Simulated assay, not measured.
Amino acid sequence: MNIQLPRSRVGSHWRAFASVAVGLCLLVLGGPARADWYQYTFNSSAFNIQSFADRSPGQNEFNVPGQLHIEFYSWTPLTGPVTEENIIGFKMSVWGGGPANLASLTWPLEPTGCQIPAGCYETASRFSIGSLDANGLPTTWDLYLRQDFRTTGFSETFEIASSQAGGSLYREAPSYYSNSGSYSTPAGELGGVWTVALVPEPQSYALMLAGLLVVGGVARRTRGRAGQVS
């Protein structure tokens, strides 16, 4: 009996040590070094969106404030000019009123082609980052997304463009009702801020959670044994 007690205590200590080591390894493996992508984000200052709806009882025109939001994703931090071949994807969204309310387009653009009887889609895109500042954020860019949808008795066109020299927005559905939201800004008038963030892959979150659970479990067992001994 006197021989088994020290051995069991030694075994418990080794098991606790091994569990903590495993937990720490999971935390390290789940750290931000295993990031899946880098997310670059642009939020513009507010601008004016001109909209009109040509439908009964007549044409209604109004102006609403809007904001442009851009996201694009890359496997590695930007170090120089990039095109669509160097990124995972990008998205352009506009917040505002009328037809520009929470509207967005994403590249790769889907769906494409004809999905009968749903209709046919035609898409176009352009992505170019020309230069970066000292923090690796875009200073010159040229981004463009467009989607046309056609089906019997209905059509819709939607496009967004942005660059450091200005931008534009256009949306129209003439066969059902004629409306459009638009903004057009010359160079220097549409301000905004670029930021970049590290986005861990989902597996990294799982590893970090598993590591925390292991370490936390060992700590609880250790406190429980200490209470029994005292």
Rank of each mutant, 00 (worst) to 15 (best):
V64W: 02
L24N: 00
P138E: 06
G66H: 06
T140K: 13
G66M: 03
R220Y: 09
I49L: 15
T83R: 08
E172P: 00
L143P: 04
L102M: 07
G130A: 14
T151L: 00
Y144A: 09
D148L: 11
F47E: 07
P200W: 03
S8D: 10
A16G: 11
G216Y: 07
T185K: 09
L102T: 03
S104K: 08
T79Y: 02
H13W: 06
W194M: 11
R7C: 05
V82H: 04
G227I: 07
S180L: 07
A53P: 00
L137E: 01
E61C: 06
W141Y: 10
S19F: 01
Q4G: 00
R223Y: 04
L26P: 02
P77N: 12
V214K: 02
S155L: 02
L29R: 02
L68N: 04
V20R: 06
L26S: 13
S182H: 15
F42R: 02
C120K: 12
S8Y: 05
N60W: 04
G167D: 06
G89A: 11
A118I: 13
A100P: 08
L132H: 09
S204F: 14
L132R: 07
G166H: 05
S131M: 01
P117K: 13
V22S: 11
Y177D: 11
D36M: 09
M1N: 01
P99K: 05
S104A: 14
R171V: 09
H69V: 06
R15F: 11
T41C: 00
V82C: 06
S163H: 05
S125C: 01
S128P: 00
V196D: 01
G31Y: 10
R9G: 11
D54K: 13
G216W: 02
A187W: 04
S178D: 07
G136H: 05
